[in-house]
Write a protein that binds this DNA or RNA. Structure first.
Lengths: 196, 196
DNA sequence: GCTATATATATGTTTCTACATATACTTGTC
DNA sequence: GACAAGTATATGTAGAAACATATATATAGC
């Protein structure tokens, strides 16, 4: 459902092929809040065309395979604008990592702390990548003169805020585990900073 | 995949029926980080039994329908512990709401602000519910004497941190939209605090 | 000449998830 | 007596998502 509206959104700004949508829009511009593989993009385009939200034209190319270029219809625009202006119910919060934490007492404290630390590294890497994108985005569009650039920036800020919150929580949780280890007198087993 | 491990985790602590897992575990204890409907729980139990991670016994009851009570096997425990101790790749960050923000320039500023504000209300409601659960959890288990209770608390903290981050971002974004409205001199159209 | 990469679209298959519906027994309420 | 609610399990179906594979043309590098 969501991919439908993302694709309509990209096409609202101009005609695009499935290849464009996959490589330029989904993978490059929207990857910090939505993902989709190639098969899903093409099948969604088929479906949107069947629903008369899009039309398509073959563009013959020389030196490259031919393209099927999609254009949004009036009905598609109406459908998109309705969806954009509607406040949808929050999806359930889902985080498989928290299953690991919830049952973390099955593990030794060392093993649990290790899982948390590795997750922290992954989150930090993702945050750094987002920061780079935000910086280059700011370079490209100056002081966000136009609305689309500002909205783009806001989505990057949201993703960065989520990563930062996750990292802060990981740090707090690791502190809690460490203080527990100290209390129970088993700190020699854990967190040996004097080693390696 | 994740539900498999959640169910193994619940059964690691004692035998349970599908009904127990759905009502007591999934809906009550784990709903802030995972959800599943009844059909999925029962089919997952079937699958885990086929894979020899669980065994089941019919318990005859009088006055109530009979129960099928599941028990984790040694293989199931090993499978669970392996998964718990493994650092898994972060799933892609997905947020359908950010699709709305990304294409928000399709909308009027009023309409966009309205969507943000409604989302804020929903997030705040969810945060309040989480806070209540955290409070009653603290009442029940005292100062988290046991590890499982501490882990439970940590998952609640993670969910609350995510909600708080989302709310803070919404507030910042609404401020930005308001300042833009003021700059462009159209503040009379927007955010009329003197009305109604 | 071979291989990799970029451009471009399509189909097959499986798993997860959601929603609906069916069955069946008991207790409590109107 | 009828009806709802709680206890308990099972199946049907459809959509979303992930992953794999197939096809075809052109260019660039080895």
């Amino acid at each position: 459902m969501s991919l439908d509206h993302a694709i309509l959104g990209f096409l609202a700004d101009g005609d695009l092929s499935g290849y464009d949508i996959k490589t330029r829009c989904v993978d490059r511009d929207a990857s910090h809040f939505w993902t989709a593989d190639q098969a899903q993009v093409y099948r969604t385009l088929d479906r949107l065309e069947s629903a008369r939200h899009l039309t398509s034209k073959q563009k013959i190319q020389t030196g490259k395979p031919n393209r099927k270029v999609y254009r949004i219809t009036q009905a598609g625009r109406v459908h998109l604008d309705d969806w954009l202006a509607t406040s949808h119910a929050l999806p359930p919060y889902r985080d498989a990592f928290l299953i690991q934490v919830y049952f973390g007492s099955e593990l030794s404290d060392e093993a649990l702390a290790d899982v948390l630390e590795r997750t922290r590294v992954q989150r930090q890497t993702r945050l750094s990548a987002l920061r780079e994108r935000a910086t280059s985005h700011a370079m490209e569009v100056g002081s966000s003169a136009n609305r689309p650039a500002l909205m783009h920036r806001m989505t990057l800020d949201a993703a960065m805020a989520a990563e930062r919150a996750a990292i802060d929580w990981l740090d707090d949780s690791l502190d809690t585990l460490r203080s527990l280890a100290t209390e129970s007198g088993s700190q020699r087993q854990l967190f040996r900073e004097d080693q390696a």
